[in-house]
């Protein structure tokens, strides 16, 4: 199979370039990650992140033929050749397919992604109805792979001020949690022309999410909560 890989080594002094690679691999049942690892076995200098190789850890997000995907659950047979693999867009490239995720993580941390409940703590669990728990479905499953946020043009232009779809989805996860008491503060934290309102409903995030989550819908719910408390 034919591949075109984005290569960049900061130590070489060379500019980034696209490398053509031919790999003898039977695509049936194989994932893109298998191919990348096979290429790496031939040429150790290719660098990429990987861990669980089953789509739950979020390490190996890359841009494949123009779309952000997890290499480990992207079947080779689905891809048109030459398969063009690039690092995630919108983040600084450290080397080859590895980007600096810190701007993404920083936005995630900025929404205070932890449960806040200052009520006295019972010795057993806090109760939550199955219906209230169901509100978290579609939000808590995020694996922080950054496929969505790095496909968002609004994040490309304002990575330091726009929270981005992943962070906003997590913000909604805590707003929606019946056990969390900081809804007002969380809304305050987001109410800002940049932090939230850079989202224009482009919906690249929905298209990119490898877990089938819908950040745009969560952002819409946050906006309607903001409107509700204003009017």
């Amino acid at each position: 199979m034919k591949f075109r890989l984005y290569r960049y080594s900061p130590e070489s002094g060379e500019k980034p370039f696209m490398q053509d690679v031919e790999l003898d691999i039977e695509p049936a049942g194989k994932m893109l990650l298998d191919a990348l690892l096979a290429i790496k076995a031939q040429d150790e200098t290719l660098s990429l992140r990987r861990s669980c190789r089953e789509g739950v850890c979020g390490s190996d997000a890359v841009n494949v033929n123009g779309k952000n995907r997890l290499a480990c659950i992207t079947p080779l047979s689905e891809l048109k050749e030459p398969i063009e693999v690039r690092p995630l867009p919108g983040l600084p490239v450290i080397r080859d397919l590895i980007v600096d995720m810190e701007p993404f993580y920083k936005q995630y941390r900025s929404i205070k992604p932890w449960l806040i409940n200052d009520e006295p703590e019972p010795e057993v669990e806090r109760l939550q109805s199955p219906a209230d728990r169901a509100l978290l479905d579609g939000a808590y499953e995020c694996i922080l792979c950054a496929c969505c946020t790095t496909s968002c043009p609004s994040f490309w232009w304002n990575p330091d001020t726009f929270v981005g779809p992943a962070g906003l989805l997590q913000a909604y996860r805590f707003i929606a949690d019946s056990r969390d008491e900081a809804t007002a503060a969380r809304l305050d934290n987001l109410e800002d022309p940049y932090r939230l309102y850079r989202c224009r409903g482009i919906m690249n995030c929905v298209d990119a999410c490898p877990k089938g989550l819908n950040p745009t819908a969560a952002i819409g719910r946050i906006k309607s909560l903001l409107v509700k408390r204003r009017v």
């Binding site: 932890w114 449960l115 409940n117 703590e121 010795e123 057993v124 669990e125 806090r126 109760l127 939550q128 109805s129 199955p130 209230d132 728990r133 978290l136 808590y140 805590f174 949690d177 056990r179 969390d180």
Partner: peptide, 20 residues
């Protein structure tokens, strides 16, 4: 108590009808 503690930290456990 270890599990209850996780719940208090916010772990989104699935729930029974009685909320437990």
């Amino acid at each position: 108590s270890a599990v209850y503690e996780l719940e208090h930290m916010g772990l989104p456990f699935s729930r029974l009808d009685n909320g437990k």
